[in-house]
Design a binder for these strands. Sequence first.
RNA 1: GGCGUGGUACCCAAGUGGCUUAAGGGGAAAGUCUGCAAAACUUUUAUUCGACAGUUCGAAUCUGUCCCACGCCUCCA
Length: 470
Amino acid sequence: MLKLFNTLTRSKEDFIPIDGKNVLMYSCGPTVYNFQHIGNLRTFFFEDILFRVLKYNDYNVRYVMNITDVGHLVSDQDVGEDKMEKSAKQLGKSVWEIADYYTEIFKRDISLMNIFPPDVYSKATDFIQEQIDLIKCLEAKGYTYQISDGIYFDTSKFPDYGKLAKLDISGLKEGSRIEFSQEKRNITDFALWKFSPENEQRQMEWDSPWGRGFPGWHIECSAMSKALLGNHFDIHCGGIDHIPIHHTNEIAQSEACNGEKFVNYWLHGEFLDMGNEKMSKSSGKFITLQTLMDKGYSPMHYRYFLLMAHYKKKLKFTYEALDAAKSGYNNLSGKILNLRKNPPSEKTLPVSERMKNFENRFLDRINDDLNMPEAMSVLWDMLKDEDLNQDEKYFLALDFDRVFGLGLENLRSDINEEVIPEDIQILIEKRKEAKKNKDFKSADEIRNSIREKGYDILDTKDGTQIKKLN
RNA sequence: GGCGUGGUACCCAAGUGGCUUAAGGGGAAAGUCUGCAAAACUUUUAUUCGACAGUUCGAAUCUGUCCCACGCCUCCA
């Protein structure tokens, strides 16, 4: 039985879908006015693990992720500059070009990290009519009011407002860190529709029954999930920062309009802990996947790093820790490659008691709220087991990798696959000769010069092998 | 001011009342192998879980106090 920690109840619950083996899942995707940083990637990775564990448990998953391509504001108190427009202005491009550009980079990054794409990417700007309709629904039911800069949701009319975050509204300090609109009736009220500024031509704006403008940030997820998954679905996930505002507001909007429960299971991924340096996208200072790749880490090294911690715990990011993950991943790859040397004669092999035992341990760990660190330790224990044969280990490793997503099936050996340059070949022959003559001094010198040229020598039982250093 | 999280070996990090006198990875050390290295393999590496009290037959896990670090109450994964 799969158990998941539900933010709504703050407890681990048995996962029971609304419709048998069919699961409906929505996750809050990227805002595409800038690159995704490695913290954002941690959240998409967590959602990928959730998706993979559901698949491993034989569920059919319909998975929707939104792309926030419409400009939302610098502050959620609904004042300030529009991030999309700001970014466009800086780069001298249209907001539409900006959105497309960063969307493509996002898709490239998650593909490099072996993160499965959702069944549907839903762009906020493709669902403007649905958002307007939802606001009309809320208006008809008396949840909205208009002030000078837009249409707002009156949170005092929604009795359970704040239940997800267990918000103590009286304890909130309005305007403690930012100016807020004096016209709002309650500090938690939020914009559903914002009017375009009088004196400014926005690149993204639409007509609505209330005037020309653009949707508030929260409404897109309520409108798109309703359109693509229905009023009531199984799982909604995102980063932990979305609990108090974004998801709280989504629940209010959706349940107020639909008159029924919105989502059964809310899951949230913790932040990557960067130490003193906080990485928020709006600050512009952050590390991307490309940064890591430029420093010689592969996306799989980063994925292995993320696998070492549970999604609900902060994970300290340091290059020292990433180096450990890099070594760990490389060691694992080496082992897998070794197991594959003599490929199994049979496509399938009978599952032994011993294998069954490891499969059960693995399933038990992943189904306990996606405990990847423990699942990884099952993998390592399995690889070191004395009673399993090579084929059985290889078979199990690939099976586990359906969840880990480390690409173990498609690993390529870096030994002898590169074309070795001629000058290196000559040196290798020379060294062979020297070794034959027991002239170890020369042999060592030659080895050193080969190393300087970026290749390493491995003397194995089967002869000398050459490996390109990275 | 309010709310919340966490402190486990050199590093990352599981474990949340007895199966654990604490997983796994990295690192380090020793050994096997080797002309020597590298690789590979084997072994070792916290009687201890921020500190101090307490509850219990039994605690890293529960309670209390204290110390430290961090997050949220703008946007943010």
